[in-house]
Design a protein around this nucleic acid. Structure first.
Length: 494
RNA sequence: CGCGGGGAAGUGUAACAGUUGCACACGAGGCUCAUAACCUUGAAGCAGCGGGUGCGAUUCCCGCCCCCGCAACCA
């Protein structure tokens, strides 16, 4: 028997400075589809997500809320964990960077490995420090020599930090990306990062004085310094597997087969992270999948605009699979997308209620009347279409084009609807047609398992296959059609 | 000259050097198993602007305009 492939998929670890929003829900759902798809192909999958919890911003937010950083991050990380549950995400683990037992030793071990290679060095850093921001700022934050947000002149401060010699690995990183050992999807993102590397990567700041940043992972053998984000947050991909103790899990699953990330953190994952791994002598991830951002009503989603979409509320109102469907179908996998109530309800009614739901209902109602069927009565007329769609879905999934994979599945639904109209089983009671329809419906459901696990399962159980026999039963309404008041001049908002 | 992405029916999208395809919405017809759903069919785009190369450009090249990201911790 063939040993199953191992497959390690991750989301990034979101910064838990605030409650999760729809953008991270997108990442979770995309990674989940990958994980479920690989499992369905027989791979041995490990799927991790988690939370990035350190840094000055968290410390500040906590203070403002009258909480300790620990209290705040417990609260917020809890929400992210809950989001994964709510969205029916099949992650195998959830790693928190504030986990002193699991994460700290891994991050510190990685640091030591890099240090042993001579790639960490101390350097005096001189910069403009704004007391209001409690952070270093750069020239672009200045207006008339003053901090744009606090209207104060920044002070010149000298600080001693550790740096990581990223520059040394520049060429090798570029080489690996070019030859496909580190694949970046989509290609445009690879081009972007390559052009950056072309210019040579600069060394990056790797620590902060502990007095300024007490909330973080201590630098090994130097209590006066705390790790800056890179060696801390990125190390989650190792710590979740038990890197510190070289566990079996780590040996089996590293390197990651795919990191799912947002475009904003591409640089860190495609430049700094590979640089660190090269230095530490660890294999590089095989691929990085980069999704875009979700806007709301055509604008950027942001707290200050007050248009942040809450994924919990959506799941509550429309159901988990509806949210998953929207994210996977409406948002182009490689690009930015948009969320609006109208678009959501359009997709819901058009594709889920009228499309999938209605097709399932009509087939099952027709078939349930007669009770029992045997696959032997099926003919070949629709087999070709089914296998064509299966092939398309497979191909699209290999390229992580989730929206196009779903579009293909809906082609099969449409084919099924046409088939019902053409064969008129309610009139002819044609057994062959009914079995064919059950098989089409079953194929649709099978293809949807990674995308809409709940719904797919429901359909599969209603189709009622037992070996070659089917005993279908009515399924109830899968997605009740939404009735919205018509948009009129007097009533422009639903 | 910082880097990159994009401008196509009302909206959203795909492919492509050779009569622009699809989806939703809209019009007409059909059907009645189904969630007023489904099927057929129609109308609707001189492809941001200007130039170049070609027998021929939406597609390749150049310039411009507009939008949007990134520019070392916003998913």
């Amino acid at each position: 028997m063939k040993k199953p492939n191992k497959f390690y998929v991750t989301t990034s670890v979101p910064y838990v400075n605030a409650a999760p929003h729809l953008g991270f829900a997108l990442e979770l759902v995309q990674a989940d589809v990958v994980a479920r798809y690989r499992r369905s192909k027989g791979d041995d999958v490990f799927f991790s997500t988690g939370a990035d919890e350190h840094g000055a911003k968290i410390a500040k937010t906590a203070e403002a809320a009258g909480l300790s950083p620990r209290e705040l991050t417990d609260q917020n990380a809890g929400k992210f964990r809950e989001l994964a549950v709510r969205l029916n995400i099949s992650n195998d683990d959830f790693i928190r960077t504030s986990d002193e037992k699991r994460h700290f030793p891994a991050a510190q071990k990685l640091w030591r490995r890099i240090a042993e290679k001579g790639d960490i060095f101390k350097k005096e850093y001189e910069g403009l420090y704004c007391v209001g921001c409690e952070a270093f700022i750069t020239a672009k934050d200045l207006t008339d020599g003053k901090c744009a947000t606090h209207e104060k002149e920044p002070e010149k401060i000298k600080e001693e930090n550790y740096f990581f010699r990223l520059s040394k690995h520049s060429e090798e990183i570029g080489r690996r990306i070019k030859n496909g050992e580190l694949k970046i999807i989509p290609q445009t993102r690879a081009n972007e990062i390559l052009s950056l590397i072309e210019g040579g990567l600069e060394d990056v700041s790797f620590s902060r004085p502990a007095k300024d940043l007490p909330w973080g992972v201590p630098v090994p053998d130097d209590e006066s310094q705390t790790m800056y984000v890179w060696c801390d947050a990125l190390a989650n991909y190792l710590s979740v597997l038990g890197y510190a103790e070289e566990s079996e899990k780590f040996k089996k699953f590293w390197p990651a087969d795919i990191h799912c990330i947002g475009k904003d953190i591409l640089r860190f994952h495609a430049a700094i992270w590979p640089g660190m791994l090269l230095s530490a002598g660890l294999p590089l991830p095989r691929a990085i999948f980069v999704h875009g951002f979700i806007g709301a009503d055509g604008r950027k989603m942001s707290k200050s605009l007050g248009n942040v979409v809450d994924p919990f509320g959506l799941a509550e109102k429309y159901g988990v699979d509806a949210v998953r469907y929207y994210l996977l179908r409406e948002i182009p996998a490689y690009e930015d997308g948009d969320f609006s109530r109208a678009k959501f309800e359009n997709r819901y009614n058009g594709d889920l209620a009228n499309g999938l739901g209605n097709f399932a209902a009509r087939v099952l109602t027709l078939a349930a009347k007669d009770g029992k069927f045997s696959e032997k009565n099926a003919d070949e007329s629709m087999k070709e279409k089914i296998s064509e769609i299966q092939k398309t879905v497979e191909k699209k999934m290999e390229e992580y084009r989730f929206h196009e994979a779903l579009a293909a599945v809906w082609e099969l639904i449409s084919f099924g609807d046409e088939y019902v109209n053409a064969t008129k089983p309610w009139e002819t009671n044609d057994q062959k047609a009914l079995v064919n329809l059950l098989i089409i419906l079953e194929s649709v459901a099978a293809l949807l398992v990674p995308f809409l696990p709940e719904t797919a399962q429901k359909i599969i159980s209603c189709v009622g296959r037992d070996g070659e026999a089917f005993s279908p039963k009515k399924c109830g309404i899968l997605f009740p059609r939404l009735v919205t008041p018509p948009l009129t001049a007097e009533n422009p908002k639903p």
